[in-house]
Design a protein around this nucleic acid. Structure first.
Lengths: 241, 241
DNA sequence: AATCCATATATTGTCAACAATTATTGTTAA
DNA sequence: TTAACAATAATTGTTGACAATATATGGATT
């Protein structure tokens, strides 16, 4: 069910081969970079730089960008290139509206048939969040906060819901980067823990209500006033030395 | 909010020009063909035939197929080409699980803030379904039955929900084509009408319950036993004389 | 007749060169 | 100094050819 990373070198024939890179790998990398706020909205994604970074041809990069644009993570402007999406306030509201509808139902339904293994996984995840928070690992915390929602959707056991939530969480990362008042305010500690507690106690109403409240709090923390563009080197941003 | 068909000949300079065709147009055509059961699961989508059909280069076709595969409408097999997706029973259950979760919430929430224009639109749509049913227009009825769900999602005013539901309804069309016992059994007349009535009367609980029941009925009408492959000419199937 | 294998054909995957557009730089004039 | 303009450079969009793979054809053998 989890995303296959496909690092499998099929045979032992290649000692340390360049490990075939396909579109999905590029998409994953950009997903992660956005989730960790390393890629800011409106950042230009030059084809050439991406080619160098991943060591692939232009075709692969182009296909990856097409997929990303189809998911609202990237904007493709004709003859101008690809840019990390910069959601408008209207789009931001749509994203959180959709997330509220989806994730509240997921939180409700997951109570009935969650597997013990998934519960343990979520508990461990929350502890990771705590560690990151205590150690002031801002970047890690941002990523983990988003990933909690993705993993909860994953625990629903439905691949479709998982993919949609992942897309929306990633877009939310862009939105928070643009309109988030304080970066520390994303997903307060106890809220994830409370949601999970309600699930463990078998209280679907509580779980649903807490999820709605939680998402409303995040949304309420946005102020649609100041865009803050920033720039950086693509190669290092994507973490491929 | 509706999908722009982009048939706009920007200037009067071109009398009946070939009207620039982009990926989305091809995607739309295949979407429609699947919705109307003209494209059966496992049908080979040859690049060359698609190029001839739409009068475009291979690149465009390839990009369209990539987008379709990303949405589960098409399967891409390396070095073998593209095929209309043939959902497994497991995938079918996932689709209907996701639809139930999504569409029941949509039915519930749309009660509060649906616009009068959308209500009228849905009413008219149901009357179109009736006409198609009375006149034994099987193909039309199949398409309209699916479109009702899409238009209801559209009435939610949320582009994201609309797109996801549209994707799932299209996949459902493949599923019903594969596992549907009787083709006449898709979306009985009164059910859509009852759902809409509940919405009009301002009864969110009823609307939600009816939607769940409705989807469960469709799902219950599937029997996972017999695949029925069929073949046809792509050009005529896609309706481009 | 059926099966297996080799050849030939067709289709897909990939790459590199070219065309079209945009961004940048440098120059000139107000 | 700033603004407008021209020429250059850089980037994207598109096309076509070539390589790799899979499919189809045909003949030989059991």
């Amino acid at each position: 069910m989890s995303a296959p990373v496909e690092s499998g070198s099929n045979e032992m024939t290649r000692p340390a081969g360049p490990e075939r890179v396909d579109e999905n790998f590029i998409v994953e990398c950009i997903y992660n970079a956005v989730m960790e706020h390393r890629l800011a909205p409106s950042t230009k994604l030059s084809e050439l730089k991406l080619c160098d970074t991943f060591g692939v041809g232009r075709m692969r990069v182009r296909r990856a960008l097409l997929l990303l644009s189809n998911q609202g993570i990237v904007d493709l402007e004709t003859n101008r290139g690809a840019f990390v999406a910069s959601p408008s306030p209207a789009e931001a509201n749509e994203v959180f509206e959709a997330r509220t509808l989806l994730e509240s139902s997921i939180a409700r339904h997951v109570v009935a048939d969650i597997r013990p293994g998934d519960l343990a996984m979520l508990r461990q995840h929350i502890s990771l969040e705590s560690v990151a928070r205590d150690n002031n690992k801002g970047v890690d915390l941002i990523r983990l906060s988003g990933e909690f929602h993705v993993k909860l959707a994953q625990a629903s056991g439905n691949t479709i819901l998982w993919r949609v939530v992942r897309e929306l969480v990633t877009r939310s990362s862009l939105i928070v980067g643009l309109f988030g008042a304080s970066n520390h305010m994303v997903c307060p500690e106890n809220e994830h823990s409370n949601i999970l507690a309600a699930i463990e106690c078998g209280e679907p109403d509580d779980a649903e209500a807490m999820m709605i409240e939680h998402l409303n709090r995040i949304r309420g923390g946005l102020n649609f006033s100041a865009p803050k563009p920033q720039e950086g080197d693509l190669a290092e941003i994507l973490g491929l030395t």
